[in-house]
Amino acid sequence: MANRLLEVEGLAKHFRGGGNWLSSGGDSIRAVDGVSFSVEEGETFALVGESGCGKTTVAKMILLLERPTRGAISFQGKDVSSFRGGSLREYKRLVQAVFQDPYSSLNPRMQVLDIIGEPLRVHQGMRGRDLRMRVGELLENVGLNPVTASFFPHQFSGGQRQRIAIARALALRPRLIVLDEPVSGLDVSIRAQILNLLVDLQRDLGLSYLLISHDLAIVEHMSHRVGVMYVGKMVELATRDEFYGNTLHPYSNALLSSVPQPDPDVPMGTTIGGEVASPINPPSGCRFHTRCPIYLETNMCREVEPEWREILSEHLTACHKVEPAVV
């Protein structure tokens, strides 16, 4: 197996409820509540789930934008929270991000040269001709004309803006790029171009991606392994082919069957009703039991939190109803 690049162990983030010095505040919001997975060298690990399930909070913790309440993140075998000074700089060089909204992720007051050049200036003190050369090269890598370096973001379309954001993420030759819904903000006609660009860059540069998405079609196209989250917890983790071929968890099944099929003769699968449970006061036992199609009023599902078990090789899930094939 390839080398482990990033490992996340029991990661949790609880936000304090809106209290002030007069009231101690409501219950804490358990946005992420014990998530473990890893990203290998050169692979795409996809994190999927409905909105509000904590995917983005996981990404923010990995990017050091939020501090975990519990759990550990390690990068190349070293604990990220212990990074200081030089090692922290190195981490910030090797881990980059592309966010969902290309209108918000580019500073409207900067020329493209300065946007893509920012990481190069900060980390390598690059300037003048070297900087222009490198930015031009990066623009070509993402399929834009280098003369556009003098333009401002408003002169580009959404897809072109996302290409600029990708060029900026590539500038420091990172190992891992966190892609938080990289194409959700784009027109459908542009999505394939950006996804193919990302796949090509991964192949050419040996990048690892942590892909955060709610779109299962994109995940199938891009990823090597898939993790499904529901209300702050991981409910299933498997390789792509296992996940799409042999789904174990009822929530994953419901997600997959809700993907529209292009063939009108194929009936819609069983969809689930109800709302995503609230992370402020998550259901007891299995968090999915309130919406679970195979929940049969057993106390087990309602009261006991299901164990995170390896059911098949490299295929883990947390469900009382799924029995391990190998014990």
Partner: peptide
Amino acid sequence: ERDFVAIAKVIGTPTWMILLKHILPN
């Protein structure tokens, strides 16, 4: 709260530079 500030933090841009180049012009 805009994403370009978050990206600047991810990159490791020093705080004074974030204030000067990202916040102040906006």
